[in-house]
Design a protein around this nucleic acid. Structure first.
Lengths: 353, 353
DNA sequence: CTGAAAGCGCTTACAG
DNA sequence: CTGAAAGCGCTTACAG
C-alpha cells in the first residue's frame, strides 16, 4: 500500500497513551474513574484526547465489560406488519421508557434471512422481549443456550417463560357476552394470524385463549363456534379493510363482527363506510385493545381496554431484574383489563320491531 | 470462591476446539466458511458445539470484524414524546424495512442521562439517522469524530449533513393559502416544539421554514405573522388536546387553526368535540403530515401529505450507501408532497350570509 | 486441509 | 498515583 493511502484511522487508547505520555491504564481511568489518577494526569489525558479527536470505542468497552447496554424487542415478522399496529407501538413505548431509565438502548430485531431463530442467535443484546412466545419453540432454546434473559408478552405462561398478560379468556368472554346480550346471533369472528413462532406449539396460544372465551359466552346462549363465521388476519389497517369487504361480499347477513384487534375493527369500519353501510345499524362490530384510534373513529368502538404501555413497562422491568440477577416477585404478571362499551354494537333488543 | 459456585459459563470457541480436537481456526471456519475445512472436521465441530451448547458470541464476532450490524435512530427527547406521533412511527417503519433488507437491527437511542450527545458518544451502531438535525450542533461533531455515517430527516441541509426533506416552505405556503382562500382571517398557528438539539443553531430549522411558508401566504392577503395567534407544542395527541382547549379559552374568535402536525390537529378536534363545538363550522383546522388517522377522524382533515415511510426508507438507503462506502447520488434528497383538501376547513366565502 | 499466533480496543487485578 | 500485562471471544493472514 502506498504511503498516501491515509485512511483516516480513529485514534485508540494506545495513541492517547503515547501522545500524552501516560499509560493506557491511566487513559482508561481518565474516562471512567478520574478519582484514581492525579488531577494533572487527567487533564493532560483529556486534552490530548480532545486534540486527537478520541472518543472511547463503545463496542470495545462493552465487549470488555461483557455487556451490550441494549435490550432487544423481537419482531415476529417483517417490521411492516409487526409495528403497524398501535397496540404493539404502545407496548414498544412502554419497553422503551424503561430502557431509557436504565440508560439502555432498545434494539428492534427483525427476522434475519426470514428466520427469527437466526435473528436471536445473532442478537447483540443483554436480554429479549418477545410477543406471543411459547416454550416449545426453538427460539426459546436458543435464548437459553445463549444464557439470554427473556420475557414474553401475550405469550403462554410457563415456568421457563416469564410472562406479562391480561386474562384473555375472561376478557373475550365478556365482550362476546356484550354482543350476545345486544341480541346479535349472526356473527363473524376475526381472529389473529397464527403466530410465526408457533411451529409445533402445544399449549394454548393467545388466539386460542380468546377463542375459548368467545366459545364460553356462545355456549351460554346455546351457540357454538361452528355457528359463527371465522376469519383470520394480521393486525393491520389494510388487512382489516380487506376483511371488511370480504364480510360484505359473504352474503351471510352478519349483524355483528367480533375482532380480536381494534386496528382490524377500524379497518372494517372504514371499508363499510366507503361501501355506504350505516354502522352500527347495518352492521355492528366489537374490537380488542382500546387503542387511541378506537375512541375517535365514528362510531366509537366497543372494545376491551388493555394497558399496552403498561405491559411493555412491566415486561421490561422484569427483564432488567433478571439481567441484574435480582429475584422476580412473580414470574407471571397478570394485569387488569376493562370492558369499554361505546357505540359500535347496535342494541337489537331495544328496538322490538 | 468455593468450588460449588458453578457459574454456568457459556462455552467459547476454545472449549469447542479442545473438545472436538480441532483448532480455534477450524471451529471458526465451521461456522463462517465451512468450505475451508473438510466435511468431517465440520461435522465433528458442529456436533460438539451442539453438544456443549455453543453459539458463537455475536459481540465478539462483531468486535473482531469492526462492525455492529445495527443502525441507530436517535430520539431527540424521551421516547414517550418522540415515538408517540404516527408520523415518526411511519418514518421508523421506513427505516426498519431497509434495515431488515440488509440484515441489520435498528437501535432506538434515547438521550443518555438526559443528554443526546452522551447517547451518541456511546451508541453501538454503524450509522445514525436523526430527525431535525442541523450542522451547528455538537452532536454532529461527535458523529464526525467517531467517524459515524449519518443522515438527517427534516433537518437543515448542509454539505456536511446528508438529508431527506420535502419542500416545507412551499407545502406550508400552499396549505395556508388554502385556508386563506376559504376566507379565514382570525387564525392561530400551532408550531412544533423547538428542537432540543438546537442550542445555538443558525440556519433555519424545520419549524422556521414552515413559518416562512405561512408568512408568504399571509403577506399575499396583507397579513403578517403578527396578526396571527402563535402557539407551540410537542407533537402528541395529549398536547394537541391541551392546545385545543387553550384556544377555546382564548376568546379571540379564532375561525381556523393551522397546525404543523396532524396529531396535534386531531387532538384539537377531539377537545373541541368534547366541548360541543361543531367542526368545521364553529372552528376549522388544517394539519400537516397526512397520517392515517387524518382520514378517519370526523371531519376528515385537510392537510399536507408527506410520505413519512418513504422519508425513512430513503434516509436509511442513503445511510447504507455511506456505510458501504458507495457514493451517494445526491446528498440532499427532496421528495414530493401533496396538498390534501378534505372537510376540516369550512368555506366561509361560499355562504354569503 | 490445518493450526499457531497476532490482532480488534478496551478493562482491571496486581505489583510497585 | 502509576503502569505492565493478561484477558474479553472472536477472525484471519500466514506458513505448513
Amino acid at each position: 500500500m502506498a504511503e498516501h493511502t491515509t485512511k483516516v484511522k480513529r485514534p485508540t487508547i494506545k495513541d492517547i497513551a503515547r501522545e500524552s505520555g501516560y499509560s493506557k491504564t491511566a487513559v482508561s481511568f481518565a474516562f471512567n474513574d478520574p478519582s484514581r489518577i492525579s488531577k494533572k494526569a487527567c487533564e493532560q489525558i483529556l486534552s490530548t484526547a480532545e486534540k486527537l479527536g478520541y472518543i472511547p470505542d463503545p463496542m470495545a468497552r462493552n465487549f470488555s465489560l461483557r455487556r451490550h447496554l441494549s435490550i432487544g424487542f423481537l419482531l415476529p415478522q417483517e417490521i411492516q406488519y409487526s409495528l403497524n399496529n398501535p397496540y404493539t407501538q404502545q407496548v414498544l413505548l412502554g419497553i422503551g421508557s424503561v430502557c431509557e431509565k436504565f440508560g439502555y438502548t432498545l434494539t428492534l430485531i427483525p427476522p434475519l434471512n426470514e428466520s427469527v431463530t437466526e435473528a436471536v442467535r445473532n442478537a447483540a443484546v443483554d436480554g429479549l422481549i418477545t410477543m406471543g412466545m411459547q416454550v416449545d419453540m426453538d427460539i426459546v432454546s436458543v435464548m437459553q443456550t445463549r444464557h439470554l434473559s427473556y420475557v414474553t408478552i401475550d405469550g403462554t405462561a410457563d415456568k421457563q417463560m416469564p410472562s406479562v398478560n391480561i386474562n384473555d379468556e375472561e376478557a373475550s368472554y365478556e365482550i362476546m357476552k356484550t354482543v350476545l346480550q345486544a341480541g346479535h346471533r349472526q356473527l363473524c369472528i376475526i381472529g389473529l394470524g397464527k403466530d410465526v413462532f408457533a411451529e409445533n406449539a402445544t399449549s394454548p396460544s393467545l388466539p386460542s385463549r380468546r377463542l375459548a372465551g368467545y366459545r364460553r359466552a356462545l355456549e351460554e346462549v346455546n351457540l357454538s363456534l361452528d355457528d359463527v363465521t371465522m376469519l383470520v388476519c394480521e393486525p393491520t389497517l389494510e388487512e382489516g379493510k380487506k376483511k371488511g369487504n370480504e364480510i360484505l361480499a359473504l352474503d351471510k347477513n352478519i349483524t355483528c363482527v367480533v375482532a380480536m384487534s381494534d386496528i382490524v375493527a377500524i379497518g372494517c369500519i372504514l371499508s363499510w363506510s366507503e361501501a355506504g353501510k350505516k354502522i352500527p345499524q347495518d352492521i355492528s362490530i366489537a374490537g380488542f385493545d382500546n387503542i387511541d384510534e378506537a375512541s375517535f373513529i365514528t362510531p366509537k368502538l366497543t372494545t376491551i381496554d388493555q394497558p399496552a404501555h403498561e405491559k411493555g413497562r412491566l415486561a421490561a422491568q422484569a427483564l432488567f431484574q433478571m439481567i441484574n440477577k435480582a429475584p422476580l416477585e412473580s414470574v407471571h404478571i397478570e394485569i387488569p383489563y376493562t370492558l369499554i362499551k361505546r357505540d359500535s354494537v347496535f342494541d337489537l333488543t331495544s328496538q322490538q320491531l
